[in-house]
Nucleic acid binder design. Structure first.
Lengths: 157, 157
DNA sequence: AGCCTATGCTTGACACGTCAACTATTGATC
DNA sequence: GATCAATAGTTGACGTGTCAAGCATAGGCT
């Protein structure tokens, strides 16, 4: 009866070797659960979570557009995958690309009106999903969580 | 100067729409960072984080082995991918499979001695990685984190 | 101008995650 | 005992993460 939720979930009687290990596993499982939930929200618009993230970044960038790799650096994963991700978004007409005249190595990207429309239609549902996913936590709990996560990333370098 | 770490990371001046949204993004970013770190630890043995998880589950199961889908259900993601994952582990000689005589629909899986050796050689490095990843948190912080994550999963069904 | 290194992608190869469709068995029901 | 729904896996198709290699353009140096 002292078992944590996680110990029961993975059906292993052995206690965790350390608090750190238990927290790590909890982090993985929790995030994967949430990622799947959010994935279902956006898939209603025929879009992927990663594609959604790219569109949000481009909407935030406004009319000046963004070079391909700059988009990548603002996302979770960096480099190469971003090219193919944007390939698909361009194929669907949600992103426009153009080689930068000043620096011909760069390829600037913009979100199209169609892309904006998709994004706007998801703002409400996504905001709801955020709130619902953490509705069991008090305001103070959420602040704690944010603080702890910030600390982990700041110390990971 | 009131910007949180996350706001600077994603270079967006707009504040988060809600605490929930900020916590969600923090969760994703933190977990992805950690997953990558752990991935590098296990790749030294020519193994993947998912493959490592499967082997750990099989080691925990002992001599009686486990049916394929039971392994899947103990991991983050469920069903179909598990077959191919185990295909690769079997190809490397780390897992042995055999159709169950009692219920011929099931395929039982065991970890081989070679698989055990790989796993054992990773126990130390992984334990270190767990500790290092959260070394900036106090014992109390870790307990808080575990509690908050447990609560989120418990409330998510 | 000519060369060298750095930068900004792009591509190929491989490992997953996810959904849907399909096969082989089981077990329950009539 | 034949039929049917449920269970256990497998397979195909597509999107994505990751690493390594390759290509074109910039910029700095001589």
């Amino acid at each position: 009866m002292n078992d944590s939720v996680l110990q029961r979930e993975i059906r292993q009687n052995r206690p965790f070797r350390s608090l750190a290990q238990e927290a790590m596993l909890g982090l993985m499982r929790t995030t994967d659960l949430i990622r799947r939930t959010f994935g279902h929200v956006v898939e209603g618009q025929g879009i992927t979570l990663q594609q959604y993230n790219v569109l949000r970044i481009l909407r935030g960038a406004g009319d000046s557009g963004l070079p391909t790799l700059e988009i990548g650096s603002r996302m979770i994963e960096e480099s190469p995958g971003i090219t193919r991700l944007i390939d698909r978004l361009e194929a669907k007409g949600w992103v426009r690309r153009e080689r930068c005249p000043n620096d011909r190595r760069q390829v600037l990207c913009w979100i199209t009106p169609a892309g904006l429309a998709v994004l706007d239609s998801l703002d409400g549902p996504m905001a709801e999903a955020d709130d619902r996913a953490l509705s069991m936590l008090s305001t103070d709990d959420k602040r704690q969580l944010i603080r702890l996560l910030d600390a982990i990333r700041a110390g990971s370098r």
